[in-house]
Design a protein around this nucleic acid. Structure first.
Lengths: 362, 362
DNA sequence: GTTCGCCCTGCAAGCGCTTGTCAGCACCCC
DNA sequence: GGGGTGCTGACAAGCGCTTGCAGGGCGAAC
């Protein structure tokens, strides 16, 4: 009848500091005077329970402060109501922002968000070897992490739907922006202002992470230049490692470029643009009077530092990925097992004019 | 014998897209030619299994690509190997950074991190009403969230250890910095430079969130002033809402203060300092020539914007909280149920000199 | 008045794992 | 050589829940 006598044999039972909220479904059943099966049905609003019974059960559950154990119900239903989110970094704006969008959607649908940060190679290797997400999640969202086919295969072996944000994953649904177009938009803006000497600070195209984003953005940069009849100069493309410090270094290098410095620079991320701004300041150069800077992201502090940039909706990309996943999950139970496929959803970008771009110096 | 025949009655079984990694412990037992009990013991390195048997079991598990179901094992052990993390915001630097520290420690010990963001009042109320963490975590970390006693009580009713980061929680272990001392350190620095007219941009002491941090930092500000024989002026204490935009507004107000503007301002967070810097720039004032600014945090971009600030170790506070929790969990199984108690661990802060502070104008 | 059918509810199996208890067995010492 | 001693491993009872199946009760239709 009572909860405690129901497991008298547990000696080294887990710490139950409070000893509270330990009512089980049998307690509720007893209190409501029905069977556990009926309690289970009543609690989940299943059709074959009379209103009167349902009320009694609900009241009993309320009085006992009862909640269904997700473990027990997950064990039998096979669903665990959690989504895994995998990121390469935490603490950086982009990832925190994407996470925010994901969390909001998941929470709204009662799903838990289980976070995995693959901060370094060790963590990453270990993650794909041990697959700690296995049997723990109903779906996985990969944020800005390029995966090789072996890694994608490992994730697939989890047998749950997958989706990617920002970085394309072969054969996997994705939410991202048109990076080529976004870069072109930024560079086109500089060209429109009259600039012809335009540099670019991006990421290492051949780095160990194999991010594809810098490749596209560089492509967009070159396309915009070519379209305007400007010959791209390889010396004006610099690696800023997508960090502020990297951006600063790259900008400094650009400024001491033999043959003259550019009058405007497209930074493939706002954080690199912030670094570039610092380099300018420390060189005694003014922005935009001497050099114009345009970023890409619309970082939360871009406005604060008056950075002109191409805004991308980061939280929205995360949210869309989460929604897609939930949709798959909902569909899986009713329809056939094979989901939509590896389509991509592109999100809009837009130019945000602020004060770091202007006409080139005379 | 085989897994599939063992649940022939499941019609609407959960979507098993891959059909992979579905071996259960009985399959492993069969393959190794032992009982499931032995498999369970062998897999967890329990003492009463002979090396030969253990090897056979391990090999079988390996061949079958078997992993223990956390659901099933959690159901019987009562431990679920997950920690809940509750934050008021995601996407902001402080929280992302704290999360990073927490995640690292948790992951290292094989714990899952389940994230909850209480972005608005609705979410918050709902969180404490439904307590979605219930039965889902072995412990909870509250990051920078002031809780009233009712809310703390609700959390306690989970029956798992609790700890707080940054904000003090009555009766709960905490990891934080000495906010009074940190503020004093910042203001003392301004005083040492010769400033006597020092403003302060902080948070609303009576806001709905009831953060206690701004209260302490304001206290530290006043103490430092008083110690130097300077009378605090209430008109020079402004609310910057702990955002860059708020900081900008507050700084603008400070600059048009009747009776003259301060020559230096202590901003209780770096993000507000960034806003203050913007206000200065837009007013045509130079920093530090006209006005000095000191922040508090050492935000990842503080260096990029040459902000002098008092650094606090954010990730380390999160990591320490996670470690404390894990320690409680480890202790709980061996020792008595009552943990250490509501002690507080203070982390060191330090002044980081950069370029936004200097001697007052002549 | 009987029969049929429907609605509600209970029974019990089982999800995949842990663990107390106990049987079996080899080995050792006296 | 017999009884102990110590291990190893099997058995089975759950953990808390969901769900197929069956049964009971009652109104409607014949």
């Amino acid at each position: 009848m009572h909860a405690v006598p129901s497991f008298p044999s547990r000696r080294s039972a887990p710490a139950r500091s409070g000893g509270l909220s330990r009512a089980s479904i049998v307690d509720v059943a007893a209190r409501a005077g029905v069977s556990v099966a009926t309690v289970s049905r009543a609690l989940r609003d299943m059709p074959n329970v009379s209103p009167a019974t349902r009320d009694r059960v609900l009241a009993a559950a309320e009085e006992l402060d009862y909640t269904v154990s997700p473990l027990a119900s997950g064990l039998v239903t096979g669903r665990i109501n959690a989504i895994g989110v995998v990121l390469p970094y935490a603490g950086r704006w982009f990832f925190a922002e994407a996470l925010r969008g994901i969390e909001e959607v998941l929470r709204g649908q009662g799903y838990d968000l289980i976070l995995h940060v693959l901060a370094d190679d060790d963590r990453r290797a270990q993650f794909f070897q041990t697959l700690p997400l296995r049997r723990r999640v109903d779906g996985v969202i990969i944020v800005a992490l390029p995966l090789d086919s072996r890694e994608i295969g490992a994730l697939r072996s989890l047998g749950v739907p997958l989706t990617g944000v920002a970085e394309p994953l072969t054969g996997v649904h994705g939410e991202r922006v048109d990076n080529v177009g976004a870069a072109r938009l930024a560079v086109q803006h500089l060209i429109n202002l009259g600039h012809r000497r335009i540099g670019c600070i991006g990421g290492d195209l051949n780095g160990p992470e194999r991010f594809s984003v810098p490749g596209w953005r560089t492509q967009g940069y070159r396309e915009a230049l070519t379209l305007a009849g400007i010959e791209p100069r390889s010396g004006w493309e610099r690696d800023g490692r997508f960090t502020a410090d990297g951006g600063e270094l790259a900008m400094t290098a650009l400024l001491s470029q033999p043959g003259g410095a550019p009058t405007a620079v497209f930074c493939q991320s706002d954080e690199m643009a912030f670094g570039a701004l610092r380099a300018l300041r420390h060189s005694g150069l003014r922005c935009p009077d001497d050099v114009s800077i345009v970023g890409l992201d619309d970082h939360e502090l871009a406005h604060t530092f008056d950075l002109t940039t191409v805004a991308q909706p980061v939280a929205a990309q995360g949210a869309a990925a989460a929604r897609w996943l939930l949709h798959q999950l909902a569909g899986a139970s009713t329809e056939g097992p094979e989901p939509v496929g590896a389509d991509v959803n592109f999100h809009e970008v837009r130019l945000v004019l602020r004060r770091t771009t202007g006409r080139p110096p005379a």
